[in-house]
């Protein structure tokens, strides 16, 4: 034992520990951190994979789905686990990769009824969900509770990623105040997605989480990265807090989580 690490941990995390910006103290921070991943699909796979490899001590995973063969084109942690609940499959993957990580599974949807109780135990939330209702629910719950949130979303060949620090920068609703009408924006299931895309966006989200936990560098607060895989371009979009934002504006309309606001079409 050296410091708080055993010999295996010193070897496992040596490339972190020798980084001046991380060091032993940073690695200890990671090992004592708790991160909640909403979704264990395309985005969730690389997020979970890299956070586990980094030694984030507790990873919560919320997903109510089971692994389908069509997922394996991009959901790289679920190999050999068709028909297995995704949270169980993800837990198996993490246990093999890094026994230091405690995985807490939630094999159900995140809902207006359970979200506040679930997110309260975590240092930061990572949104890798696949529908607008969940995205707005997660944003609003994080804003109301002051919980940091990494947002990522993908579609066909394009991806978007930003980091939300409530009270410091804009939230998702500052940008996209309302969900589009139902059926207006097709899902990845309907329109397709290139398999490598969630790897890029999910790893950026995992990078932001690690940086937040280590208090390192500049986060994507007030900035969104738009990635276009066909052109291989990354555009940075400046985003500002919206004074009339219904979630974090000067007179917010959303002061509690009400189930009727998070139907498939999102009424707010």
């Amino acid at each position: 034992m050296i410091g708080g690490f055993n010999n295996e941990q010193i070897r496992r995390y040596s490339r972190h520990i020798i980084l001046q910006e991380v060091g032993g103290k940073g690695q200890e921070k990671l090992l004592s951190s708790k991160v909640l991943c909403i979704g264990a699909g395309g985005l969730g796979s690389p997020i979970i994979q890299y956070l586990a490899a980094a030694g984030v001590g507790t990873i919560g995973i919320v997903d109510d789905d089971v692994v389908d063969l069509s997922n394996l084109q991009r959901q790289v942690i679920h190999g050999g686990n068709v028909d297995v609940p995704k949270v169980e499959s993800a837990k198996q993957f993490v246990n093999k990769l890094n026994p230091d990580v405690n995985v807490k599974t939630y094999n159900h949807r995140i809902t207006p009824e359970n979200i506040l109780d679930i997110i309260k135990d975590y240092d930061i939330v990572v949104d890798g969900s696949d529908n607008f209702a969940t995205r707005y629910l997660v944003n609003d719950a994080c804003v109301l509770t002051g919980k940091p949130l990494s947002h990522g979303s993908i579609f066909r060949f394009e991806g978007q990623v930003t980091t939300i620090l409530p009270n410091e920068g804009p939230c998702y609703r500052c940008l996209f105040e309302h969900a589009p009408p139902a059926g207006m924006v097709p899902s990845c299931q309907e329109a397709g997605v290139i398999g490598v895309l969630p790897g890029i966006i999910g790893v950026i989200q995992a990078t932001e989480v690690v940086k937040y936990l280590l208090d390192l560098g500049e986060l994507l607060v007030g900035r969104m990265i738009y990635y276009d895989a066909t052109q291989m371009t990354f555009d940075e979009i400046k985003i500002r807090k919206n004074p009339t934002c219904p979630a974090c504006g000067e007179n917010p309309k959303i002061t509690t989580i009400e189930a009727e606001n998070y139907q498939e079409t999102c009424t707010l």
Binding site: G39, S153, F155, F176, V185
Partner: peptide, 10 residues
């Protein structure tokens, strides 16, 4: 001006 699409896939 920037025109940005809203997407929800994950």
């Amino acid at each position: 001006l920037t025109i940005l699409k809203i997407v929800s896939g994950g």
